[in-house]
Nucleic acid binder design. Structure first.
Lengths: 337, 337
DNA sequence: TTGAAAGCGCTAACAT
DNA sequence: ATGTTAGCGCTTTCAA
């Protein structure tokens, strides 16, 4: 069933059918009726592949999301979709794993789908100019930056919180409440990643507050998965945990940490406080509710789209937006002073 | 940059370029080299839109997932993707909201992307023959069935647990442990849905065990969202909860229920036990760890693909697979006997 | 082994 | 208001 068949069945030409389908005004009501009738009766649906081919480019942007199961992204994606639709654009969403390279993937997607721009949700922090050359449309990094890369700042946009400064926030929050021995749970960073930034922030914060930096207080796990966080904390507890508070690099790691400590007889927050990063909704419901640094997901989605469309439509330079996280108080941090 | 440009740059014809790109054997090594070089140098990537247009049909199937934020689906999706890739098919994944109609959406997607089949992840249970007429390729319902519909069973496949029987499992599990006053927390069902089946199962189980069915023990919430479950349980607690155990229709509702009870001074499992359905990973880490009816997500993904490909490739009739859930013991159910 | 040319289904000039 | 037709970028006969 093609537009040709519809034309034949309705006794008109293909262009008339095309006009009806695309809601062009200059079609007589009678003919429009007839065409629509045939369309309905035969469940005709235009082949958008052909449609896209013939159009110079689609009003669509690609979203490349790192990790299907990360609960941090869905709310951002929903917001992005809403903003794009409002602007008359559609969203082409793909998930990739840590093994795939988001830049290569983006380049292919961009060509294949004739996209006008890309939003990266998560990614490496060390893009080189050579690598990004394959990308011929504007892009924006959402929830990470190109901190270690060499791509000129005007060439792309980003929306992220300051991953170094945010560690000052959480460490400071604990400090104000009397904590002096503050641990850190985060994935190790063989590749330059967000973990490395947060680690730097942690070290910087301790130094600034003149707190001791102890190696045994930094708990490295092999990924952001709960199981890995659980194991790392469990092991640390068995060796003997020497801190009064722990910072978890993500909420899910925080959940896992609480369980591990619980099993080892360390009560949160009585024996050890915990604060984590992300602001997932679930942290409101856990026992104890987790005190967390909330990333403004809605804003991040919104602003990513705004910056991207600005680059696409107005050909403007890339901009770099630092969003402000806020600490949402739960029940996992105890006041010591 | 099109195949034409590559041809010009390499000093060959477009068909030769096409052959190289598609790894046809009959191209001289020298020319192949040259073409590949041009491709690399100019970052040429074939336009798959055009590619798909010219090909009779793609080796791809669509996955239509109801709800972006439901953590139950991602593991299933990953499994589906893996199985499809193994079979040489690619996956075309779309998320829709509760407002959209999955059948209409599927029909459009099928045509637009020239798909060979559809997997529905979640959906209504009352498809009519007329509604499904727009779909011209095989489909499989994963994690739900067409219980209330009138589509002949051989016309589609499904992979699901028995939503009625599973309630017998969980209610029976509580019964064996001495519980006699068993409540239920689930979304209300204005439309025919999985909730209705589970409600029926609950009622049936109570009857079979000769337990009293009390209206005030059925806590209806307006959706599967945590907040709604939380409110429903909170309200019920304030009125006075008269059961020794609660069944939550999903793990996330279970998490919310525990929090609501906790705030109202009802301890889980000491004052009230809780069992939920899904088997999400997070239930292993919550305090208390939640006893849950684990749906075999991996199997469900795998079998969905198997049945679908069987229909596509072998033109076989639809099959209906009932998968067996298992109860994973947590810390949320107390033994009373 | 290579090239010329006919479509895939659709849209958008251009013509009537 | 409606029809004719030239592509969009690619694959695939068919000829050479």
């Amino acid at each position: 069933m093609t537009i040709k068949d519809v034309a034949r069945l309705a006794g008109v030409s293909v262009s008339t059918v095309s006009r009806v389908l695309n809601k062009h005004p200059d079609v007589s009501p009678l003919i429009r009726e007839k065409v629509l009738e045939v369309v309905k009766e035969h469940h005709f649906i235009p082949n958008s592949t052909a449609r896209n081919l013939v159009r110079p480019r689609r009003d669509a942007v690609g979203i490349i999301c790192l990790g299907r199961s990360n609960p941090f992204y869905p709310p951002i994606i929903s917001q992005i979709e809403e903003m794009l639709n409002k602007a008359g654009y559609s969203m082409c969403l793909r998930f990739i794993t840590l093994e795939e390279d988001e830049l290569t993937y983006a380049a292919e997607l961009e060509r294949a789908e004739r996209l006008q721009g890309i939003v990266f949700l998560g990614g490496r922090s060390d893009y080189t100019v050579a690598e990004t050359a394959a990308l011929t449309v504007p892009y924006v990094c959402c929830s990470f930056t190109n901190y270690f890369g060499d791509v000129p700042r005007e060439r792309y946009s980003s929306v992220t919180m300051d991953d170094v400064a945010c560690m000052h926030d959480v460490v400071g929050y604990l400090y104000e409440r009397g904590h002096r021995e503050i641990g850190l749970l985060l994935p190790s960073f063989p590749n330059r990643s967000i973990s490395e930034l947060r680690y730097r922030g942690y070290c910087g914060a301790l130094k600034k507050l003149e707190l001791p930096m102890r190696e045994e207080n930094v708990l490295f796990c092999s990924s952001f998965r709960e199981e890995d966080g659980y194991q790392a904390v469990k092991k640390a507890c068995q060796k003997g945990l020497n801190c009064t508070a722990l910072v978890a690099a993500s909420d899910m790691l925080g959940v896992a940490a609480i369980r591990a400590m619980h099993e080892e007889g360390v009560r949160v927050p009585d024996d050890c406080s915990l604060i984590s990063i992300d602001g997932l909704n679930i942290t409101r419901y856990t026992l104890p509710a987790i005190t967390t640094l909330v990333q403004p997901q809605k804003t991040m989605g919104e602003e990513s789209v705004r910056l991207l469309l600005d680059m696409i439509i107005n050909k403007s330079d890339g901009q770099h937006l630092i969003v402000t996280p806020t600490i949402r108080q739960g029940e996992s941090v105890q006041r010591l002073n």
